[in-house]
């Protein structure tokens, strides 16, 4: 046996790092390859229009005002439906997290109703709330409601009990304990829930608009598909992707501001 052996470093790997530029480069590369495929005729135009064609369609839709009208209608539905579902969901989630009386009954309902695809209920909502905006708001609100309840009450469940007891030891009122200890403690989980509910809301928005609406990005995409206008169709999809990206970026900002203490 040799007397001296160099001890090798063995703890490398398992620590992926984040490079923003490589993410952007990947997207650019995919678009470039797609454009190349279209230009060489490898990808038929009807199957998948080229990025340039999509860009042209976007420009045309912007000029005609079609994009503006549909986007506005969709964003309004998204805003009202999501806010409604979130506010009711957080309130119910707090109740579940705090009151024995609310806990089991609400959780039973949530467990039973959460797995139902809300899209299946859209025709019912149209009967209940009318073909207009009401049924869209209701679809989104109900879709957002359940995940919000779950993220809120599990956030409250994860607030350390010793902090609650500390609050009680200082004779804080129940409302003070909820406001100063429970809610800030549950906030990370609630905001993580927002990421999920924003995607859920966009999916439901498009579905609801496809079932019964004459405006909105979903209705626009459906109409474009029916007419085999695949460049318009993809343009609509791009808008949805951009919508999701910007909402997620806003959320990241909010999280950074709210969790400077972490």
């Amino acid at each position: 046996m040799r007397a001296e052996v160099l001890v090798p470093f063995r703890a490398a790997g398992f620590s992926p790092r984040h490079h923003a530029w490589s993410g952007v480069a990947t997207l650019a590369l995919v678009i470039l390859a797609w454009q190349g495929g279209s230009a060489t005729g490898l990808i038929p135009d009807l199957f998948l229009p080229s990025p340039l064609a999509v860009a042209r369609a976007l420009w045309r839709l912007t000029l005609s005002g079609e994009l503006r009208t549909n986007l506005l209608a969709s964003v309004l539905r998204l805003a009202v439906g999501w806010t409604l579902g979130t506010m009711i969901g957080i309130s119910v989630g707090i109740a579940v997290g705090i009151f024995t009386l609310a806990r089991s009954p609400v959780l039973a309902l949530v467990s039973a109703l959460f797995p139902i695809p809300k899209i299946a209920l859209v025709p019912l909502f149209i009967i209940w709330f009318g073909i207009g905006e009401g049924s869209k708001f209701a679809t989104l609100a109900i879709g957002v409601f359940f995940p919000t309840v779950i993220s809120t009450y599990s956030g409250i469940d994860n607030v350390q009990r010793n902090l609650v007891m500390m609050g009680q030891s200082f004779n804080l009122s129940t409302w003070s304990i909820v406001r100063k200890i429970m809610l800030p403690g549950a906030l990370p989980s609630v905001l993580a829930g927002f990421r999920i509910t924003i995607s859920v809301a966009i999916i439901l928005l498009v579905a609801a608009e496809m079932i019964g609406a004459d405006s909105g990005i979903g209705a626009f995409i459906l109409a474009a598909g029916n007419l085999y206008r695949t460049d318009d169709l993809i343009a609509g999809v791009v808008i949805l992707s951009l919508l999701g990206l910007s909402l997620s970026a806003i959320l990241t900002r909010i999280e950074r501001a709210a969790f400077s203490w972490r």
Partner: peptide, 26 residues
């Protein structure tokens, strides 16, 4: 009747001053 806890039980989202303030508020 006031406690000092083994694990400190400080609110992580409040500053030092904010934590001291908790028992005074209200």
């Amino acid at each position: 009747l006031t406690y000092v806890f083994q694990d400190f039980a400080l609110l992580p989202w409040r500053t030092v001053a904010g934590n001291i303030s908790l028992g005074l508020e209200g």
